[in-house]
């Protein structure tokens, strides 16, 4: 079996995996990082979104071996200790989640959006989230949360720059 090694949430990990093992299976089964979810089998729902080398990808549509040597961040790696990432905080503040199943993917996608577009409009947010399906919220409060999270991230960036 091939061996993979990668950085996950800042920690070096490695393991033997079946070549057909998906990145999401490696994260959930081998590393017990069960915050990343699987909601579909056609690469559309986005519950499995993680960051690979800083960009959002669907971990259900990538083999674990394809992430060999990469730096992977999952929802478990977003907070600093018990202090949530500003986007996580914004989702709580704006009631941007209900059952919580799509939430990790939503947060990871939203953070990627703000990385490329620090002040997205409502239309831009709705368009960006085309690859993340939520059945609970009607997206109303998710949009509010992403907007709020972006503002928090901008404020934090500004504070860090000063």
């Amino acid at each position: 079996m091939p061996t993979v090694s990668m950085t996950v949430n800042g920690k070096q990990v490695s393991g033997e995996v079946d070549a057909r093992k998906l990145l999401v299976e490696f994260l959930r089964e081998n590393l017990l990082l069960t915050g990343t979810h699987v909601g579909c089998d056609t690469s559309q729902c986005g519950a499995c979104v993680v960051h690979v080398d800083g960009r959002s990808v669907k971990s259900c549509t990538m083999l674990a071996v394809m992430a060999d040597g990469a730096s992977v961040t999952t929802i478990e790696g977003m907070a600093s200790g018990e202090t949530m990432h500003p986007m996580q905080e914004a989702f709580r503040e704006q009631h941007g989640l209900q059952c919580g199943f799509c939430t990790p993917g939503m947060v990871m996608s939203a953070v990627d959006l703000v990385a490329v577009n620090p002040d997205p409009s409502e239309a831009e947010i709705r368009h960006w989230l085309g690859g993340n399906i939520c059945r609970c919220t009607g997206y109303h409060n998710i949009v509010e949360a992403v907007r709020d999270g972006a503002a928090r991230m901008r404020a934090l960036g500004k504070a860090a720059a000063e």
Binding site: Q44, V49, R55, K58, T61, W128, G131
Partner: peptide, 9 residues
């Protein structure tokens, strides 16, 4: 094309 995560791969 697709969505952001698809475009990243």
């Amino acid at each position: 094309i697709g969505d952001p995560a698809v475009r990243n791969r």
